[in-house]
């Protein structure tokens, strides 16, 4: 399982928008962790397939409120066109 770490503002809607982005791209979420600290939230979302990580990455990055998306485990994955 590959895991994405999403850092975002704590504005209402960021969590829903992030989850909907997986649903919209038809990518099942295998694991979800959410924590809220001060004015920011951190989400760890696990997905099964590597290609799904690359597919969803750019879409997560364009959500307003999302500050950073990184891929955990193994090597850094470069955004591929």
């Amino acid at each position: 399982m590959r895991s994405l770490r999403i850092l975002a503002t704590d504005e209402e809607g960021t969590l829903q928008r992030t989850i909907f982005e997986f649903s919209r791209r038809n990518i099942p979420i295998g694991r979800l962790m959410y924590s809220h600290e001060k004015d920011s939230v951190t989400m760890h979302i696990g997905v099964e397939r590597d290609e799904d990580v690359n597919r969803v990455l750019k879409h997560l990055n364009r959500i307003y409120g999302v500050r950073d998306v990184s891929i955990l485990e193994n090597e850094e994955v470069r955004e591929k066109w």
């Binding site: 597919r55 750019k58 879409h59 990055n61 364009r62 591929k80 066109w81």
Partner: peptide
């Protein structure tokens, strides 16, 4: 592929110069 939305580049047609 030229687009103002980076997420569209490579979404449906891959292997492009974006």
């Amino acid at each position: 592929h030229i687009d103002i939305d980076r997420a569209e580049i490579g979404k449906n047609i891959t292997g492009v110069v974006g």
